[in-house]
Every structure is written in C-alpha cells, then in structure tokens.
C-alpha cells in the first residue's frame, strides 16, 4: 500500500503540492488526473525519492522514500514525462544498460516485457533518438520494467502520443496489472481516467476526489444537456447570460449545459436560443462523463 499523509511541497513562492493525503492499494491501476501544473509530477518525484517533501510523510510498501531511498529505487520503475533514455544508444543497448544498472539481465525478466518488447524488437539496432513517439514510449516502458518493479510510476506516459497508440498503451498497462504490478499513472486526458481502477482528481496542488471513475460519475447529481445549433459561439455567449444557467462549456461538437433548476428545462432553453435568432437547435439530455465531473468539481472549489 502507498500512503501519502499531509504532504506539502513548495518551490520558492509556488505551492506545488498542498496538504495531500491519500492511499493507493496494492495491485491497483491508479490515475492522477489533472491539468498541467496541477502538481502531479511533483507528487511523483516525491514518491520516487527524487524530491523531499517539505511536510508530511509518504509510505511505500512499508518504506519511506526519503530514508530508504536505496530500497525504494530497487522496487520502483519510473518513466518520466520527458523521454529520458540515451538517444545515441540503440533499443537493445538502452535496455541492456538499464538491466545491468539494476543488477539484472534482460533474460531474467523477459516474461514481463515480452509483449511490449516484441513490438519494437524488429528495430532493436535502431538508435532511440530515431524512434517514433509510440516506439520511444514502449522502449521507456520496457526499461522501467526490466528490474521487475513492484510499483510502476508513469508520469504522463501518453502525452504527445496518437490516439491508437494511447489505447494500445492502456491495454499494456492492464495486462501488466494482471501480473501483480501496482501502477500509478498521471495524465491530463480526462478520457483516460475511465481506464483506471481508481482516480484522484488533482488541481492547484490539491486532491479533490479519490474514487473509482464510476463512483465519480455516479456522484454527478445534476441534469446535463448537450446543446447544438448553427452558431455555437453565439449560443455559448447566450447561454452564459441566461438567468437560469448554472454552467455551460464547449464539449466536443456540443455545448454542455447545466441548469440551476432541477426540472428538465429543454423547452426554456430552446426558447431562449430561438429568441436570439439561433437555428437548427438540438438539445438532448446526456450522461456525464469524468470530464464533466472534473469541471463541476473545479467549479465548486473556485466559487
């Protein structure tokens, strides 16, 4: 189990992480979701012993990352947000290097990386700097796994990766989870939250909710309407000024609208939009997804 207790960390004036407490169960696929600058990377760097917390304590499988950093480094596989393997070494050489550094060999833990490594094996003589984004990411994952870590720590692994590769990547994570590795991942993409067993919504250095993605969505109390018409921008401005509007924001090709009242106000909104000369109006109730929940949470906190 991983336990954060009242963790805070500041850089000069900036409070990167504020009084964070949460626990992550062993064997989970746990996600930190939050926009850039939320404090995810800082939290990760404290967990993997690269940063020391100003306040609070962290427990990682019974170890303190600060005091027992040597042991912690043996059981963590860390993949930083920025690709940080040697550009001028080949796939094979990078992997070999990190295996040796951790006192193991590729053969010893090949079963862990086999599925992933097979995909990049045809290019094993190629220098890491010349790989595509998706291949780099697979190589980095292999290197982070090669010493059979108990905890895999992935800092924004899917940032800058195409949609297909992202899906593939999450499939890989699920299969690693089934091998008993605890995985902690951070991402700015809300849609990826659904893949996690449990997610923490993070903003401005604070954790807002730690729940399963389903529970987060279920907790969304309000009626959500998806609005579409011929002039979306005008509609957005119109609805923002509408007296009963609770919140409205663009969401893909729709506007997501929440009303202050509890009743379903489809007719009222339709009238309001018509009054402002908008046409082809289409209003449907929709189920909220995790992004709606996040927007709702941050709204609650900022008000």
């Amino acid at each position: 189990m991983i336990q954060f207790t009242n963790i805070s960390k500041s850089f000069d004036e900036v409070k990167a992480v504020r009084n964070v407490s949460l626990s992550i169960d062993e064997g989970q696929l746990f996600g930190f979701i939050g926009p850039d600058g939320a404090g995810k990377t800082t939290l990760f760097r404290m967990l993997n012993s690269l940063l020391i917390a100003d306040e609070g304590s962290i427990e990682l499988f019974g170890l303190d990352p600060h005091k027992d950093y040597k042991k912690v480094r043996q059981i963590i596989g860390y993949m930083p947000g920025k690709f940080s393997l040697y550009y001028d070494l080949s796939i094979e050489e990078n992997l070999n290097f990190f295996a040796t550094v951790f006192g193991t060999t590729i053969e010893e833990n090949y079963h862990l990386i086999e599925d992933i490594y097979k995909q990049i094996e045809p290019f094993k003589k190629r220098h890491a700097g010349k790989l595509s984004g998706g291949m780099k990411q697979k190589l980095a994952l292999c290197c982070a796994l090669i010493h059979k870590p108990k905890l895999l720590l992935l800092d924004e692994p899917t940032t800058g990766v195409d949609a297909v590769s992202r899906r593939e990547f999450w499939d890989m994570l699920k299969s690693l989870k089934s091998k008993g590795i605890t995985i902690v991942v951070s991402t700015p993409y809300m849609d990826e939250a659904g893949m996690c067993d449990s997610v923490a919504l993070m903003q401005n250095g604070q954790i807002h909710a730690v729940e399963s993605p389903k529970a987060i969505v279920d907790n969304f109390q309000k009626e959500l309407l998806a609005v579409k018409c011929n002039d979306m921008y005008k509609a957005l401005l119109t609805l923002r000024n509408y007296e009963n509007c609770y919140n409205v924001y663009p969401f893909g090709e729709y506007l997501h609208y929440i009303d202050k009242r509890d009743s379903k106000p489809i007719e009222d909104i339709n009238d309001c939009l018509l009054k402002h000369d908008l046409q082809e109006i289409e209003i449907n109730p929709v189920k909220p997804d995790i992004e709606d929940c996040f927007i709702e949470l941050t709204r609650k906190l900022s008000v």
């Binding site: 993997n48 012993s49 690269l50 040597k70 480094r73 043996q74 963590i76 860390y78 930083p80 920025k82 690709f83 940080s84 393997l85 040697y86 550009y87 990190f98 550094v101 951790f102 006192g103 290197c143």
Partner: peptide, 13 residues
C-alpha cells in the same frame, strides 16, 4: 539537459 540524469537518478547507481 536531455533528462537522462533523471532516469539515472532513480536507479541504484
């Protein structure tokens, strides 16, 4: 600068 130091730092080197 490249960031490889970050990766090296979490190893037992």
């Amino acid at each position: 600068e490249i960031g490889t130091a970050e990766q090296i730092n979490v190893t037992p080197i």
